[in-house]
């Protein structure tokens, strides 16, 4: 695998991770870039679990930036700003309206997840990592990973239920984590 192939294989996941963690396009882009610079400065071909390793570097960069910025203050306006940037090109007006509503709702929901929960959620669903890998990256016990995911799902589900989302109907349990 060449560097470019590695970059192409992971850039979207890294960017999405950064985006959800930082809630800001510009920061996400910068940190995505820096994460890959960090990755390529190391002997990445020797790394055994490439995906987990890359996600760890990306997550560490995100957490570092979050810590520095304490971006709570900016979050509101930035998420708003990112919505305005969201475009859907060749779809009918009706579809766009519907998707915008759903997307905005998701954004709104995810925005409410605390950073700690967001970190496990992004590593789990974007990074597709195991509980053990997530625990190693965040330096927390596997049990804590499980409980954080459970908590995040509970928060999201509760919000969605209160909004009476049709696709949730008929589902009553969270399943095995």
């Amino acid at each position: 695998m060449t560097e470019r192939e590695l970059f192409d294989a992971y850039n979207k996941d890294v960017y999405r991770t950064c985006y959800y963690m930082l809630r800001n396009k510009q920061d996400a882009e910068d940190i995505c870039h820096d994460a890959f610079v960090t990755i390529f400065r190391q002997d990445w071909k020797e790394v055994e679990h490439t995906r987990a390793w890359i996600m760890r570097i990306a997550m560490n960069h995100c957490l570092n930036l979050l810590k520095r910025n304490q971006i709570q203050r900016e979050k509101q306006e930035q998420v708003q700003w990112s919505h305005e940037q969201t475009t859907a090109s060749v779809k009918s007006v009706d579809t766009i309206l519907l998707e915008k509503t759903v997307a905005a709702e998701w954004e709104e929901l995810l925005k409410q997840l605390p950073d700690k929960l967001m970190a496990v959620v992004t590593l789990r669903y974007i990074g597709e990592l195991s509980m053990v890998e997530i625990g190693e990256i965040l330096k927390i016990p596997v049990g804590t990973v499980k409980s954080r995911i459970h908590k995040a799902l509970k928060i999201l589900r509760k919000k969605l239920e209160s909004n009476n989302n049709s696709w949730l109907k008929g589902e009553n349990q969270f399943g095995t984590l």
Binding site: R16, K25, T86, A88, E99, T122, Y125
Partner: peptide, 8 residues
Amino acid sequence: MKESDNIS
């Protein structure tokens, strides 16, 4: 989070 095109 991973697939939808709500993120450009």
